Computed example of a mutant assay.
Amino acid sequence: MKNSNFKTLTKRLIQKIVFFILLFTGAQSFGQTYPNPYRTVENWAKLPNGRTMGAVGKVTIDPDGEHIWAVIRCDATEPERFGDECLDSDLDPIIKFDQEGNVVESFGGGMFIWPHGIDVDNDGNVWVTEAVSDNRIPEGDKRGHQVIKFNPKGEVLMVLGNPGVPGNNEYEFNSPSDVVVADNGDIFIADGHGENTNNRIMKYSSDGTFIKSWGKTGYGPGEFKSLHGLDIDLRGRIFIADRGNNRLQVFDQEGNFIAQWTQFGKPSGVFFDEHDNIFVSDSESDNVQNPGWEMGIRIGDAHMGWVHYFIMLPTGDPRVKTTNGAEFVAVDKYGNLYGGEPGPRKLQKYVRVRP
């Protein structure tokens, strides 16, 4: 056997061994052992006309790689309002920022009670999920349980779901938490936000035609407990932040289970950059829900799953069981990170300062 062929076979064997270690053991990695090459940029996001920053939901990046889209849940600041902050507000919750943190576009005022997930497809269209719980929807209110597609200026192009009515058939949702659009236009929706919702993945064609669904509430492969976020890596694999089960689940686009990763903590959100890196936000780890882990953002290799860096949340307290820090994370083409922090009501920017 030629030496080059031997090296290739050895490399593939090592990759397979690592894959199965990650699949069956989760290769646990505690945040404190990893370096943090980033620093925070305080007060980066600037809302116009003195608007108060509300709870921040998901953040994502425009196809130009420079602009940042975010869900800002109006301006309610009372703790008891968490879950319906836009109920009685006309403020725009869908906001586009430039690199300096200035608002350059906004829309969606009065259309949502609790907007949650957001994605921007390759054509620049903006997809937003409404994850409000059914008990937070006033009688007769036709908001909630839907996913809305906007053009870049805020014109509604498509609505999926039965607004204001939860359901579990092919064209109904129950508090959908996130959405991602594949390169071919297929739409994947994380249908559920909590144990008592549908906890399934819905797949539609680009015109909104139902294709298939998979998943249910549970603990096994292909089952979910409070699924929260999702994204697609460079290989076309779908990563689901199965937050209630303290793991990422990995599938192909037909819903076939590939692996589960537990080395990224208790994941709320997941994002992939163009350099094959994976970024996972953990806003929930504490001494009750995920003992021994710290809240923050873990960064690693999207192929093999190795964790390389960790941005620990300095205000995180594992003795307190509450959402803190970034639930979602996104990365622009310059390598800057953006964390959507609903509890602290921050859209936090991080810049890399060390190699």
Score class of each variant (00 low, 15 high):
I148L: 09
D90E: 13
S281D: 00
R143A: 11
L91K: 07
G161N: 08
G335M: 01
W306E: 13
R73A: 10
F279E: 03
F328T: 07
D75N: 12
Q32A: 13
E327A: 14
Y338M: 10
I14P: 00
V165D: 11
F239S: 02
W306Q: 15
W261E: 00
T217D: 00
A76E: 13
K216T: 14
G83K: 02
L227E: 05
Y204K: 07
K46Q: 11
D276R: 11
G215S: 01
K321A: 13
W261C: 04
S226Q: 08
I311E: 06
L230S: 00
G185A: 14
L157T: 00
I68G: 01
P344W: 09
R354V: 04
N287S: 15
P93N: 09
A190K: 12
H145P: 01
G222S: 04
L157Y: 06
G340W: 06
D332W: 00
W44P: 06
M312Y: 07
R345D: 06
I201H: 03
E155A: 13
F251E: 14
E155M: 07
P267Q: 02
E284N: 10
D123M: 04
H67P: 03
E100D: 15
F224N: 00
D90T: 13
G340M: 14
R136D: 15
A330V: 09
H116P: 04
I61S: 02
N5Q: 11
V179M: 12
G26S: 03
I278M: 08
P355Q: 14
V159I: 15
G339W: 10
R81S: 15
A76Q: 13
S205K: 07
T8Y: 05
P318M: 14
D233R: 00
N245T: 02
Q263W: 02
D134C: 07
P93I: 11
S283P: 15
E284M: 05
L248E: 00
K349T: 02
F279L: 11
G335W: 08
F239H: 09
G161W: 04
Y171L: 14
M1Q: 06
L87A: 08
E78D: 13
M158F: 00
V329L: 09
G296R: 15
V181D: 08
G108N: 01
E100Q: 12
L160Y: 05
A182R: 12
C74G: 01
D121N: 02
F6I: 09
I113P: 06
R200K: 10
P152C: 05
Q260E: 10
A241V: 07
D62N: 14
H228V: 03
Q32T: 06
I187W: 02
D64Q: 11
D183W: 12
K216D: 03
E66A: 12
N125P: 07
V270K: 01
M304W: 09
D301H: 15
L234Y: 04
K266F: 00
A326C: 15
R354E: 15
S205Y: 05
A45T: 07
A259Y: 00
N287P: 01
P79K: 03
S133T: 09
G185R: 06
T323L: 15
R73Q: 07
R354M: 10
D178M: 08
T60E: 02
S205W: 06
D252L: 10
D62W: 09
V329D: 12
V179C: 05
E80K: 14
L9V: 12
I232S: 05
G83D: 04
I240R: 11
